[in-house]
Structures are given as C-alpha cells and as structure tokens.
Design a protein around this nucleic acid. Structure first.
Lengths: 220, 220
DNA sequence: AGATTTATTTTGACTAATCAAAATCACGAT
DNA sequence: ATCGTGATTTTGATTAGTCAAAATAAATCT
C-alpha cells in the first residue's frame, strides 16, 4: 500500500497537471506540498522506481497510468469525504478541506463505496469540484471564470478553485457559492478590477486574481 | 499532536490495563502492538519523556493522567467510528474493527462530536464495548462470562471481547450477539467444554477460552 | 545458595521522509 | 560564445519508528 506521503505526492501531481499529460515542474510540486525542492527530487526518483511516475530530469514529472489511477482514487476519497462532511454532518463549508486531507488516506475502498451510495453518487463536491468516478473518469471540462467570461450575461457559478479557508469564507460571505447566479457588470484589465452583481444584490468589487478562482458557465 | 503510533501505544496500554491503574508489562504491549520488545522499551522511554506514561524499569508501564486522556479520546473515536460503520453504512459487523483502526487517527474532535450526535450518543459500540464519554469517563463494569456465569439461568449477552474477524464471524453464525438471551446448560471444567442454548435453539458447544470471551449479565 | 529460564534493556543498523546548503545545469541576454 | 539567473539535483544530517541479536536483571527451581 502507498503511504499517505506517496498518496499526497500523486494527488498533487494530478491537480497540478489539470488532470492531463503535462510535465509538472519540480518547484511547483514542492510549493504545493510545502517541502523544499530537494525533497521532491528524492521522492520523485523513488516514485519513478515504483512505476508511479515518469521523471524527466531537469524538466519535471508526469504520472504514469498506474500513478494516475492511485491519484484519482485519492482525489475521489477526498471529494466524497467533503460531501459527507458538509451534507451529512453539516460541517462548515470552508473547514472541510483540512479534514478531508487527513481522512482521504485512512478510508478504505469499501467504506468509500458505501459512502458514495449513501450520498447518492454525487458528481461534484461542495466546492463544485468534479468527483472522479470509481472507474477513474474525471470530468475536466474547461470553464470560464469571472475574470474571463463575457460581461453583462447571467452565469451560474460551478466551482471555487481556491480551497483555502480564507477564500472560501470570503466566497460564503458574498454568496458566491456553486449554483448561484451572477453577472459581471464591469471589468477593467488596467486597474485589475472586476465588478460582479448577484441578481438582486449590490455590486461587489474583486481583484482579477480572486475573480479567476470562480468558475462559471452560461445559465441554461 | 500525537502521531498515530503514539496514539496506538497509549490506546493499547489503556486496553491492557482494563481502564485501571495496573502496570502493563512491556511484553504484553509488544504482543498487542505486534512489535519486538526492544521497540517498546525505546518508545516507552520517549513517552515517559513527553509525560504520557510512567515507566518502571523492568516492571512495566502505566498511563499518566495526560496519557489516559489521550488514550480515552482515541478509544472513543475508535468505537464511535465502529458504530457509524455498522449503523449508518451497514458494514459487516466483523470487519469494522480493522477499518476503525485507521480512521481513529484521522478523525478530528470536531467530526467526532458531530458523529456522536448523528448516532444519538450511543453508550456502547456494536460489539458491546462501552464508549468513553467526551469527558473521559469509561464505564468499566465487571461482567460475568459464559465461562464463569451461573448455570441454567437466562442471561443477556452484553459484549464480545475478542475483536478478531474470525471470532466475530463465529459469534454471528451462532447468534451470539449483544442483546441476545442465552442460557448455559452445562459446564465441565475438566473437559473444558461449555454448552449454551439460545431460547429456542439447539445446544451449542464451545471451549472455555471462547466462552470466556462472551460477557453476560442477568436479564432484568 | 547456585543454576536456569524468562523478561527487559541495550546496541547497532535500517527505512522513510525530511531539511540546509552547496553543486550543477539550462536558458535567455548580452 | 560567455555570463548570469533561476530551477534542479546532490550531499550530508536529522527524526521517528522499527528489527536483530547480545547483554542484563529478575524470578524460579531445584
């Protein structure tokens, strides 16, 4: 069995490669895992030996099919656990990421399946992130963000891509939750300012960086 | 935070001391944790430094108040998780111990409390073992067993003290579950044989060792 | 008491995961 | 073609937890 350290390396590689095939730079991995770059090099070499990744020295690292399989399973656990914590235990939306971080490594496949059934096989977690299927299929649709979408059009929020408690708190405070409808009324690249409005609400100003963390799709 | 290794050491000390004050022999701990005795010595000295235990060289080890507090919390997590797995996820009675072994170290106090509420504050886990209260109170009543009880009297099963999957399987197969009523019809110390009978059932023979693992109390 | 058995402790070594800091490489700019 | 910069890799150490096997202490049995 993979240790939880290994599971974390693989999971973050998956997240950093957007579910795709790109090489993940060692530095980005180090950043995401909060370890120094040298540690990542060492670990990645071990992971290459065990067949989980392909290491291109001085370039980066890529998941193998096997590594991807493991990573998807961990991600599935993480996101289903988040669903459980929010939907069943009614926990705070912003706090569950930290909890799931631990539980994703402790939960068995058996428990996972039953949890999935209990929750009614959800397709996304409470932040709107897609849950990999048991077969390892991950819906990685490309969405627009509040920083890139068309102006003055009604949009449905589908996902918040910053999992930090602070950002999630901010999102809750301003009702920017998956499912809600918003409209960007103004966007000024020069000043880096985006103004969004919920149907009946007052306009809300946010920076481009923040706006880019909120994924949207046209309302059907 | 205590590592899960530390949590396991403390939990097993608590279990081996029957919730009490007795010194636990190093060998017994090694056995329970499936490590060699030398490892226990090393670890126990570290635990003594951190104030979790008191080490009496060549005699054994005992939990301090702080160690006991941690151990009770872990045990509470273990048993509440078992309840959840059986009552909510409908998992196999005999399999949940292994699962809970992992989860007890990954679950936060916050999640624990909500789980407790969701389950309606149960007092015992599915095997009949008492669940420590949040304040760290553990009901450690002394019960009779099928090996020690009076003969020909109706008794309620309250607990199965062997958590191994094999034994639990056997218990399920023969309907020896907590809550069920049985009567010991015969007990022969010489041959080491105990014969028990469920109200309407055929007599069942079991060895003294096995009988001693089934705790009972008089039917009220 | 003296000898033997049994439990415990010590010693030396190993693995997984990490860091700090020095060495190396690759790439764009001169 | 060389230089400098930034990313990556190496090297040497450290910590937690473990084992094997030798050393020691305590208990038991003549």
């Amino acid at each position: 069995m993979a240790t939880s350290t290994v599971e974390n390396y693989l999971k973050h590689m998956l997240l950093l490669s957007e579910g795709g095939e790109e090489l993940v730079p060692m530095g980005a991995l180090a950043e995401a895992l909060a370890v120094v770059p040298g540690t990542v090099t060492t670990m990645v070499k071990a992971l290459a030996d065990s067949g989980h990744v392909e290491h291109r020295p001085r370039q980066g690292v890529r998941l193998t099919a096997e590594g991807r399989r493991v990573a998807l399973n961990v991600l599935r656990k993480h996101r289903l656990v988040e669903c459980f914590l929010v939907n069943v235990l009614k926990m705070d939306w912003a706090a569950v990421d930290t909890e799931a971080e631990q539980l994703e490594h402790a939960i068995s496949d058996e428990v996972l399946d039953r949890l999935d059934a209990l929750l009614g096989h959800p397709e996304t977690d409470p932040h709107g992130d897609p849950i990999p299927s048991r077969q390892g299929k991950l819906d990685s649709q490309v969405y627009a963000t509040l920083a890139t979408c068309v102006v003055e059009k009604a949009l449905r929020i589908v996902r918040i891509t910053d999992q930090s408690a602070e950002f999630l708190q901010f999102a809750v405070q301003n009702g920017l939750l998956p499912g809600e409808t918003v409209r960007v009324t103004e966007r000024n690249l020069a000043s880096g300012l985006v103004t969004a409005k919920k149907n009946a609400g007052r306009p809300l100003a946010l920076g481009l960086a923040a706006a880019g963390k909120i994924l949207v799709q046209p309302t059907r």
